[in-house]
Structures are given as structure tokens and as C-alpha cells.
Simulated assay, not measured.
Amino acid sequence: MGHSFTLIGTDTVFAERVTLKQLGDEVFFTVIAYQQNDDKPVTFKLSSVEAGIFSFDNPEHDFPTRISYSNPTKDSIHAWIEGYTAGEFQKIDFLFKRSN
């Protein structure tokens, strides 16, 4: 489980709770993005693990339909979401780096 949030000044502009769960041979990634989807969870299923990239899909969700994670260096994570909105492909990158 994890919780993340984004601050601009002292205002929280984004917050989410995530859960990674294995059920049998399948792995699921569930996200609750507050003030989105009526604060209801959206679940994505692990669809591929290739070259250190873990991708989770939910083709029924409006956007994103895929969430991916990689660990390019020991102290960082590269995450991205992707899918189609209004017929246009979109990809949004998130780069996280551990600070001391």
C-alpha cells in the first residue's frame, strides 16, 4: 500500500492511495485518486513485465488505460500513464527520485 500527494505551496492539489495485491497467479494494482472517479477504486491488472518495466492494464477505464513503472536507477522510479482521450493518444510521465 502507498499514499502519494502533490503540494503546491501548502495546498494539496493531488492525492491518491495505491494497493498492489497478488491473487493466485495474478497481480492487481488498485488506485483511488481523490476527487476523481467519485473517489472509487480503479483496478488495473499486471499485463507484462519486460526489460524491468511493469505494466498494468484496464481497457475499460476512460483514462488512463495503462499504468507502467520502471526503476531506471537505484534511487529513482519512472512511472507513466497512457491511453486515449478524445481519440488522441496521451502519455504522461512521472519521475521520482529519492532524497536524503
Rank of each mutant, 00 (worst) to 15 (best):
K97H: 10
T73A: 10
P59N: 04
L46F: 04
Q35T: 04
Y69W: 15
E60Y: 11
D62Y: 14
V49P: 02
T43A: 00
F94P: 05
F56D: 01
G24V: 07
F29Q: 01
K45M: 03
A33D: 02
D57Y: 04
R17L: 12
I67F: 00
H78P: 06
N37F: 01
S55H: 06
D25T: 13
T65Y: 04
E60N: 14
T85G: 12
E60S: 14
A86Y: 09
Y69R: 03
E60R: 09
V31E: 01
A51H: 08
K91S: 09
T30H: 00
L7R: 11
Y34L: 00
F29L: 02
K21C: 07
E50L: 10
S70K: 06
K91L: 15
F56G: 00
P64Q: 05
L20V: 11
Q22M: 11
G24F: 03
Q36Y: 03
G9H: 12
T30N: 00
K21M: 09
F96S: 09
S76H: 06
S48P: 03
D57W: 02
I53E: 04
L95D: 07
V27S: 04
I8V: 13
D93I: 13
D75C: 06
T85M: 09
G87M: 10
F56H: 02
A33F: 01
T65C: 03
D57G: 05
G87D: 08
E60A: 15
K21D: 09
P59L: 05
S76W: 05
V13R: 07
F5H: 11
A79N: 10
D39E: 00
S68T: 07
M1P: 09
Q90V: 14
V31Q: 01
E60T: 12
A86M: 09
S70N: 10
S76T: 15
T65V: 14
I67P: 00
Y84Q: 11
A51S: 11
H78D: 12
F14S: 14
K91R: 15
D93G: 08
N100W: 07
I32Y: 00
S47A: 10
P59D: 06
K97D: 07
M1C: 13
Q35V: 01
T65A: 05
F5D: 13
K45E: 02
D38P: 01
D57L: 07
S55N: 05
F14Y: 12
I8H: 08
I77L: 15
Q36A: 01
W80A: 06
K21T: 13
D75N: 15
E60W: 09
T65L: 08
S68L: 05
Q36C: 01
Y69T: 04
D93A: 07
S68F: 03
Q35F: 03
A51P: 04
Y69K: 03
D57I: 05
G24L: 08
A15D: 15
A33I: 02
L20C: 07
T6S: 08
D75A: 11
K21S: 11
H78A: 12
F89R: 06
